[in-house]
Amino acid sequence: NKFNKEMRNAYWEIALLPNLNNQQKRAFIRSLYDDPSQSANLLAEAKKLNDAQA
């Protein structure tokens, strides 16, 4: 399933972002599970926040 693969990839990328705190990571990951079709958008948002907090 395409969404499962995208979701799994996004999950690990988000989990490993160095500048997000655990609460932020959990919120993004919860959103991934709520709507796997938004994986790419959620990952992009997480990366933006990660960069902003660098």
Rank of each mutant, 00 (worst) to 15 (best):
S39W: 09
F3S: 05
I14A: 00
A40K: 11
I29A: 07
A40C: 03
E6F: 03
K5N: 10
M7K: 02
P18L: 06
L43Y: 04
N1M: 03
S37H: 06
L16I: 09
A44Q: 15
R26Q: 04
Q53W: 09
E6D: 08
A44E: 09
K47H: 11
N19Y: 13
L17E: 01
L42R: 08
N41V: 08
A52H: 12
A46L: 02
A52L: 13
F28A: 04
F28Y: 08
L32I: 05
E13W: 08
S39P: 03
L17Y: 06
Q53H: 07
Q23S: 13
K5R: 04
S37L: 04
E13Y: 12
K5D: 12
A27T: 09
K25H: 02
N4I: 05
K5W: 06
A44D: 11
A52W: 13
K48W: 11
N22C: 03
N21D: 15
P36G: 05
N4L: 08
E13M: 13
A15P: 01
Y11T: 13
L43F: 04
N22P: 09
P18S: 12
E45P: 00
A10V: 10
A10E: 02
A40F: 07
A52D: 10
L17G: 00
L49W: 06
R26T: 06
D34C: 04
D51S: 09
Q53R: 02
Y33G: 04
K2D: 15
S39I: 13
A44I: 12
A44H: 13
Q38C: 04
D51L: 14
I29W: 11
N21Q: 12
L16G: 15
E45R: 14
N19D: 05
L20W: 00
Y33W: 04
N19P: 00
S39N: 07
R8E: 15
D34S: 10
N41A: 14
Q38D: 12
Q38S: 07
R30K: 09
N22K: 13
I14W: 00
P36A: 08
K2Q: 11
L43D: 00
L16W: 09
K2V: 09
N50Y: 01
I29M: 05
L43A: 12
K2P: 09
N9L: 12
L43N: 02
K47Y: 11
L49H: 06
A44P: 01
N41C: 03
N9M: 13
K5C: 04
L32Q: 01
S37P: 06
E13I: 13
A46T: 01
N19R: 06
K48R: 13
Y11H: 11
N9I: 11
S31T: 05
F28H: 01
M7V: 11
L43K: 08
S39M: 15
M7S: 04
A10I: 14
R30A: 08
N1C: 15
N22T: 11
K25S: 01
I29S: 03
N9K: 15
A46Q: 00
D34W: 09
A10K: 07
A52T: 10
L43S: 06
F28M: 05
A27C: 02
L43W: 03
N41E: 08
A40P: 13
K48T: 11
L20G: 00
K5Y: 04
R8S: 11
N4D: 15
P36K: 04
D51A: 14
I29E: 02
I14Y: 00
D34K: 07
M7T: 09
N1V: 08
A15R: 15
N21R: 06
F3K: 04
A27M: 03
F3H: 14
L43M: 09
L16Y: 15
L20S: 00
K25V: 05
N22L: 14
K47D: 02
L49V: 10
F28S: 01
S31Y: 10
A40D: 09
L20M: 03
P18K: 15
W12D: 08
A46H: 00
E6A: 04
S39R: 15
N21I: 07
P36L: 08
Q24K: 02
A52Y: 10
R8D: 06
F3C: 05
N1I: 07
L32F: 03
K25G: 00
N21P: 04
A54M: 13
P36I: 06
K2N: 13
R8N: 08
K5P: 14
N1Y: 01
Q23M: 08
N50W: 01
L49P: 00
A40E: 09
R8G: 04
F3P: 15
N4E: 13
N41H: 12
Y11F: 06
D34G: 12
A54K: 03
N1F: 02
N50M: 01
Y33R: 04
L42V: 14
Q53Y: 10
K48S: 09
